[in-house]
Protein backbone atom coordinates (compact mmCIF):
# COMPACT_ATOMS: atom_id res chain seq x y z
CA UNK A 1 0.00 0.00 0.00
CA UNK A 2 1.33 3.40 -0.90
CA UNK A 3 0.58 6.31 1.36
CA UNK A 4 0.17 9.87 0.19
CA UNK A 5 2.70 12.39 1.34
CA UNK A 6 0.08 14.06 3.55
CA UNK A 7 -0.80 10.79 5.29
CA UNK A 8 2.85 10.03 5.92
CA UNK A 9 3.35 13.52 7.39
CA UNK A 10 0.40 12.95 9.72
CA UNK A 11 1.70 9.58 10.86
CA UNK A 12 5.12 11.06 11.47
CA UNK A 13 3.85 13.89 13.67
CA UNK A 14 1.49 11.52 15.55
CA UNK A 15 4.45 9.22 16.26
CA UNK A 16 6.47 12.16 17.59
CA UNK A 17 3.69 13.15 19.98
CA UNK A 18 3.30 9.58 21.26
CA UNK A 19 7.08 9.34 21.68
CA UNK A 20 7.03 12.48 23.81
CA UNK A 21 4.50 10.93 26.21
CA UNK A 22 6.42 7.65 26.31
CA UNK A 23 9.58 9.57 27.21
CA UNK A 24 7.69 11.39 29.99
CA UNK A 25 6.40 8.06 31.33
CA UNK A 26 9.84 6.44 31.20
CA UNK A 27 11.48 9.45 32.86
CA UNK A 28 8.98 9.28 35.73
CA UNK A 29 9.71 5.59 36.23
CA UNK A 30 13.48 5.79 35.72
CA UNK A 31 14.07 8.75 38.04
CA UNK A 32 11.39 7.63 40.54
CA UNK A 33 9.63 10.96 40.39
CA UNK A 34 6.95 11.23 43.05
CA UNK A 35 3.41 11.53 41.65
CA UNK A 36 2.97 14.57 43.92
CA UNK A 37 5.56 16.38 41.81
CA UNK A 38 4.89 15.00 38.34
CA UNK A 39 2.41 12.16 37.80
CA UNK A 40 2.96 9.68 34.98
CA UNK A 41 0.85 10.35 31.85
CA UNK A 42 -0.84 6.94 32.22
CA UNK A 43 -1.86 7.89 35.76
CA UNK A 44 -3.19 11.23 34.51
CA UNK A 45 -5.19 9.62 31.74
CA UNK A 46 -6.63 6.95 34.02
CA UNK A 47 -7.59 9.66 36.55
CA UNK A 48 -9.22 11.57 33.71
CA UNK A 49 -11.23 8.52 32.69
CA UNK A 50 -12.15 7.45 36.21
CA UNK A 51 -13.14 10.96 37.27
CA UNK A 52 -14.91 11.74 34.01
CA UNK A 53 -18.46 11.48 35.39
CA UNK A 54 -17.54 13.98 38.10
CA UNK A 55 -15.52 16.18 35.74
CA UNK A 56 -18.05 16.24 32.90
CA UNK A 57 -20.38 19.00 34.26
CA UNK A 58 -17.33 21.17 34.92
CA UNK A 59 -16.02 20.59 31.41
CA UNK A 60 -19.40 21.59 29.99
CA UNK A 61 -19.47 24.66 32.23
CA UNK A 62 -16.03 25.78 31.07
CA UNK A 63 -16.85 25.07 27.44
CA UNK A 64 -20.12 27.00 27.59
CA UNK A 65 -18.52 29.94 29.38
CA UNK A 66 -15.69 30.02 26.86
CA UNK A 67 -17.99 29.86 23.85
CA UNK A 68 -20.22 32.61 25.20
CA UNK A 69 -17.25 34.86 25.95
CA UNK A 70 -15.73 34.03 22.57
CA UNK A 71 -18.99 34.82 20.77
CA UNK A 72 -19.31 38.18 22.50
CA UNK A 73 -15.64 38.87 21.88
CA UNK A 74 -16.01 38.06 18.20
CA UNK A 75 -19.04 40.31 17.77
CA UNK A 76 -17.42 43.23 19.52
CA UNK A 77 -14.05 42.51 17.90
CA UNK A 78 -15.49 42.51 14.38
CA UNK A 79 -17.44 45.70 14.99
CA UNK A 80 -14.39 47.44 16.46
CA UNK A 81 -12.10 46.06 13.77
CA UNK A 82 -14.41 47.23 10.98
CA UNK A 83 -14.65 50.64 12.60
CA UNK A 84 -10.90 50.95 13.02
CA UNK A 85 -10.11 49.50 9.59
CA UNK A 86 -12.44 51.74 7.60
CA UNK A 87 -11.79 55.11 9.17
CA UNK A 88 -8.41 56.74 9.52
CA UNK A 89 -9.33 58.87 12.54
CA UNK A 90 -10.95 55.93 14.32
CA UNK A 91 -7.69 54.06 13.79
CA UNK A 92 -5.67 56.86 15.35
CA UNK A 93 -7.95 57.10 18.38
CA UNK A 94 -8.74 53.46 19.01
CA UNK A 95 -5.39 51.84 18.35
CA UNK A 96 -3.44 53.26 21.31
CA UNK A 97 -6.40 52.49 23.58
CA UNK A 98 -6.54 48.90 22.33
CA UNK A 99 -2.83 48.35 22.70
CA UNK A 100 -2.97 49.77 26.21
CA UNK A 101 -5.93 47.62 27.14
CA UNK A 102 -4.41 44.44 25.77
CA UNK A 103 -1.22 45.05 27.75
CA UNK A 104 -3.13 44.82 31.05
CA UNK A 105 -2.72 41.30 32.50
CA UNK A 106 -6.19 39.79 32.64
CA UNK A 107 -5.55 38.50 36.19
CA UNK A 108 -5.76 42.13 37.24
CA UNK A 109 -9.16 42.53 35.58
CA UNK A 110 -10.89 39.53 37.18
CA UNK A 111 -11.23 41.09 40.67
CA UNK A 112 -12.86 44.14 39.09
CA UNK A 113 -15.42 41.98 37.30
CA UNK A 114 -16.03 40.06 40.52
CA UNK A 115 -16.50 43.36 42.33
CA UNK A 116 -19.09 44.43 39.76
CA UNK A 117 -20.94 41.20 39.12
CA UNK A 118 -20.14 38.89 42.03
CA UNK A 119 -18.29 35.61 41.57
CA UNK A 120 -19.50 32.90 39.19
CA UNK A 121 -20.15 32.65 35.47
CA UNK A 122 -20.51 36.34 34.57
CA UNK A 123 -16.94 37.42 35.38
CA UNK A 124 -15.65 34.28 33.63
CA UNK A 125 -17.55 35.14 30.44
CA UNK A 126 -16.35 38.72 30.57
CA UNK A 127 -12.74 37.68 31.17
CA UNK A 128 -12.90 35.26 28.25
CA UNK A 129 -14.34 38.04 26.11
CA UNK A 130 -11.70 40.64 26.98
CA UNK A 131 -8.89 38.12 26.56
CA UNK A 132 -9.85 37.22 23.01
CA UNK A 133 -10.90 40.60 21.55
CA UNK A 134 -7.54 42.06 20.65
CA UNK A 135 -6.32 39.65 17.94
CA UNK A 136 -9.73 39.83 16.25
CA UNK A 137 -9.77 43.62 16.14
CA UNK A 138 -6.22 43.82 14.82
CA UNK A 139 -6.74 41.20 12.12
CA UNK A 140 -10.10 42.50 10.90
CA UNK A 141 -8.71 46.03 10.72
CA UNK A 142 -5.59 44.86 8.88
CA UNK A 143 -7.62 42.71 6.50
CA UNK A 144 -9.93 45.55 5.58
CA UNK A 145 -7.02 47.87 4.92
CA UNK A 146 -5.20 45.58 2.50
CA UNK A 147 -7.25 46.26 -0.65
CA UNK A 148 -4.89 47.01 -3.54
CA UNK A 149 -5.13 50.66 -4.59
CA UNK A 150 -5.42 49.62 -8.27
CA UNK A 151 -8.42 47.42 -7.50
CA UNK A 152 -10.06 50.27 -5.67
CA UNK A 153 -9.39 52.58 -8.63
CA UNK A 154 -10.91 50.09 -11.07
CA UNK A 155 -14.07 49.86 -8.98
CA UNK A 156 -14.36 53.59 -8.35
CA UNK A 157 -13.91 54.34 -12.05
CA UNK A 158 -16.83 51.99 -12.68
CA UNK A 159 -18.83 54.11 -10.26
CA UNK A 160 -18.89 51.70 -7.34
CA UNK A 161 -20.10 53.04 -4.01
CA UNK A 162 -18.09 52.60 -0.83
CA UNK A 163 -20.52 49.90 0.21
CA UNK A 164 -19.99 48.02 -3.07
CA UNK A 165 -16.20 48.19 -2.67
CA UNK A 166 -16.53 46.93 0.89
CA UNK A 167 -18.88 44.12 -0.05
CA UNK A 168 -17.15 42.91 -3.21
CA UNK A 169 -13.51 43.36 -2.31
CA UNK A 170 -12.59 44.47 1.19
CA UNK A 171 -14.74 42.02 3.16
CA UNK A 172 -13.79 38.85 1.23
CA UNK A 173 -10.17 39.96 1.35
CA UNK A 174 -10.40 40.35 5.14
CA UNK A 175 -11.83 36.84 5.64
CA UNK A 176 -8.52 34.92 5.91
CA UNK A 177 -7.30 37.45 8.47
CA UNK A 178 -10.55 37.12 10.41
CA UNK A 179 -10.47 33.33 10.53
CA UNK A 180 -6.80 33.22 11.39
CA UNK A 181 -7.61 35.41 14.38
CA UNK A 182 -10.55 33.19 15.41
CA UNK A 183 -8.25 30.20 15.83
CA UNK A 184 -6.04 32.18 18.17
CA UNK A 185 -8.93 33.93 19.90
CA UNK A 186 -10.77 30.75 20.82
CA UNK A 187 -7.77 29.35 22.67
CA UNK A 188 -7.24 32.71 24.38
CA UNK A 189 -10.88 32.70 25.48
CA UNK A 190 -10.15 29.40 27.25
CA UNK A 191 -7.29 30.96 29.11
CA UNK A 192 -9.57 33.78 30.22
CA UNK A 193 -12.34 31.48 31.42
CA UNK A 194 -10.07 29.20 33.44
CA UNK A 195 -8.25 32.19 34.92
CA UNK A 196 -11.51 33.61 36.22
CA UNK A 197 -12.72 30.20 37.42
CA UNK A 198 -9.60 29.63 39.49
CA UNK A 199 -10.08 32.98 41.20
CA UNK A 200 -13.80 33.28 41.71
CA UNK A 201 -16.20 30.51 40.81
CA UNK A 202 -17.66 27.30 42.19
CA UNK A 203 -17.95 25.43 38.89
CA UNK A 204 -15.68 24.79 35.93
CA UNK A 205 -12.35 23.09 35.32
CA UNK A 206 -10.49 26.01 36.83
CA UNK A 207 -12.36 25.53 40.12
CA UNK A 208 -11.75 21.78 40.07
CA UNK A 209 -8.03 22.32 39.61
CA UNK A 210 -7.97 24.87 42.42
CA UNK A 211 -9.63 22.43 44.80
CA UNK A 212 -7.45 19.53 43.65
CA UNK A 213 -4.35 21.62 44.32
CA UNK A 214 -5.60 22.45 47.80
CA UNK A 215 -6.00 18.72 48.55
CA UNK A 216 -2.69 17.77 46.88
CA UNK A 217 -4.52 15.60 44.33
CA UNK A 218 -1.83 16.24 41.73
CA UNK A 219 -3.04 13.64 39.19
CA UNK A 220 -6.44 15.39 39.20
CA UNK A 221 -4.76 18.75 38.60
CA UNK A 222 -3.00 17.25 35.62
CA UNK A 223 -6.20 15.57 34.47
CA UNK A 224 -7.77 19.05 34.43
CA UNK A 225 -4.83 20.38 32.41
CA UNK A 226 -5.21 17.52 29.93
CA UNK A 227 -8.92 18.17 29.59
CA UNK A 228 -8.22 21.84 28.88
CA UNK A 229 -5.56 21.05 26.32
CA UNK A 230 -7.86 18.58 24.57
CA UNK A 231 -10.71 21.10 24.44
CA UNK A 232 -8.33 23.75 23.14
CA UNK A 233 -7.11 21.47 20.36
CA UNK A 234 -10.67 20.47 19.51
CA UNK A 235 -11.85 24.06 19.10
CA UNK A 236 -8.72 25.02 17.18
CA UNK A 237 -9.33 22.16 14.74
CA UNK A 238 -12.99 23.14 14.31
CA UNK A 239 -12.12 26.73 13.45
CA UNK A 240 -9.18 25.75 11.25
CA UNK A 241 -11.63 23.50 9.36
CA UNK A 242 -14.14 26.31 8.90
CA UNK A 243 -11.31 28.57 7.75
CA UNK A 244 -10.23 26.04 5.15
CA UNK A 245 -13.80 25.74 3.86
CA UNK A 246 -14.53 29.46 3.71
CA UNK A 247 -11.26 30.85 2.43
CA UNK A 248 -9.26 28.00 0.98
CA UNK A 249 -8.25 30.35 -1.84
CA UNK A 250 -5.86 32.11 0.50
CA UNK A 251 -3.90 28.98 1.41
CA UNK A 252 -4.15 27.19 -1.91
CA UNK A 253 -2.35 30.10 -3.45
CA UNK A 254 0.49 29.59 -0.99
CA UNK A 255 0.61 25.86 -1.68
CA UNK A 256 1.28 26.68 -5.27
CA UNK A 257 4.01 29.15 -4.41
CA UNK A 258 5.78 26.52 -2.30
CA UNK A 259 5.44 23.71 -4.84
Amino acid sequence: MKLTRRARDHIKSAACIVALFVAWELACVAFRISPIVLPRPTAVISTLIVQMPALWPHILQTLATTMLGFLLGTLIGVALGAFVGVSRSAYNTAYPLLVGFSSIPKVAVVPIFVLWFGSGTVPAVLTAMTTCIFPIVVNVATGLATTEPEMEDVLKALGASRRQVLWNVSLPRAMPYFFASLKVAVTLAFVGTVLSETVAANRGIGTVMMMATASFDVPLVFAGLFALALLGILLYVVFAGIEQRVCGWATRKQDLAVA
Binding site: E148, E150, D153, A157, L158, G159, R173, C247, A250, K253
Partner: peptide
Protein backbone atom coordinates in the same frame (compact mmCIF):
# COMPACT_ATOMS: atom_id res chain seq x y z
CA UNK B 1 -21.36 57.66 -13.23
CA UNK B 2 -20.69 56.42 -16.72
CA UNK B 3 -18.87 53.23 -15.82
CA UNK B 4 -15.35 53.78 -17.08
CA UNK B 5 -13.38 50.64 -17.93
CA UNK B 6 -9.89 50.61 -16.48
CA UNK B 7 -6.88 48.32 -16.60
CA UNK B 8 -3.48 48.73 -15.02
CA UNK B 9 -0.16 46.96 -15.44
CA UNK B 10 -0.98 45.01 -12.27
CA UNK B 11 -3.98 42.78 -13.16
CA UNK B 12 -5.43 42.69 -9.60
CA UNK B 13 -7.89 39.88 -10.21
CA UNK B 14 -9.64 38.74 -7.03
CA UNK B 15 -8.25 35.34 -5.93
CA UNK B 16 -11.51 34.05 -4.44
Amino acid sequence: RIGIGMAFQNPTLLPW
